[in-house]
Design a protein around this nucleic acid. Structure first.
Length: 262
DNA sequence: AGTACCACCTGACGGC
DNA sequence: TGCCGTCAGGTGGTAC
């Protein structure tokens, strides 16, 4: 489930592998993933160019092609990148394959095809087109308050709303609320300034820690919920049972003892 | 404005 | 054994 930390790791992976290599050819293997572009546009945008720069906004990865357009990658739920030389390492659900002059390939792998590939003239164009809020790690404390204050709904859907803040999904919203000790169904209007501050701190802490752990749950601190995510499992703080509920349609894990009822 | 529900999509899993 | 329903979840559409 690629959320902000996962996409940040993809960005660093691409930066350390495929950047500044002349592209020999590009092949769109599944048209389903194309977002408002034709396969030939993607191919001609890539061929005989280089990937010169990357940026991340929320769950989107943008890749600049020479000094021109930007390729946009969204990983849906099962997407990822693979850089390899041996064709045997081409991932099973390869949807876009970029081949470089040096004999290496970069595959955009996406099993469930919920991801997307597009082209924009600038990162700002993508943000505008998708109506994305500021990136969760770029946004400062006053802006966080401003974007949440006055909202009527529950805190978990607000954190997950990409128009309010970009980058947080189902898994990390649970972790942020666990670390901040707020119940996922807490009404945003019931969070006072101090509570919003605590939520902001937890958001930054969780996202940065996840990046430092290379978004690998096995590396996460013992005090994190994510590695124990599952119904009935022990809470890493109090040892009580983790419960599962639905919050606006999403499977939500929390500790009823640590995260007080709204 | 917010929520509920559906669809997209594939693969895993449990029940019978 | 195999068939079927359900679930996972990011996004986006519709209805209320």
């Amino acid at each position: 489930m690629p959320e902000l930390p996962d996409v940040e790791i993809f960005k660093r992976y691409l930066d350390s592998t495929a950047l500044h290599q002349p592209v020999e050819r590009a092949e769109v293997k599944s048209r389903t993933i194309l977002d408002g572009v034709e396969a030939r546009q993607v191919q001609s945008a890539l061929e005989n160019r280089q990937l010169t720069e990357t940026r991340r906004h929320g769950k989107y990865l943008l890749v600049r092609l020479d000094e021109g357009e930007w390729l946009t990658l969204h990983f849906g739920m099962t997407g990822g990148l693979q850089y390899f030389k041996n064709p045997e390492r081409d991932p099973l659900h390869d949807r876009l394959l970029i081949s470089f002059d040096n004999g290496y390939h970069l595959a955009f792998d996406c099993q469930r095809m919920l991801g997307s590939v597009g082209l924009v003239d600038s990162p700002e164009e993508l943000i505008e087109r998708k109506d994305l809020g500021p990136d969760a790690l770029e946004l400062d404390r006053p802006a966080f308050h401003e974007r949440l204050q006055g909202r009527r709904g529950m805190v978990k859907p607000a954190l997950m709303n990409q128009r309010i803040i970009a980058g947080i999904g189902n898994v990390y919203s649970d972790e942020i609320l666990f670390q901040a000790r707020y119940h996922p169904k807490t009404a945003v209007k019931d969070l006072n300034t101090t509570a919003l501050d605590a939520l902001f701190d937890a958001m930054r802490e969780v996202l940065q820690t996840a990046i430092d752990c290379r978004a690998d749950p096995d590396r996460f601190p013992d005090s994190y919920l994510l590695p124990h995510r599952g119904e009935g499992g022990p809470c890493p703080v109090c040892g009580g049972e983790i419960e599962k509920v639905k919050v606006s349609g999403r499977g939500t894990y929390y500790c009823p003892a640590c995260q007080l009822a709204p």
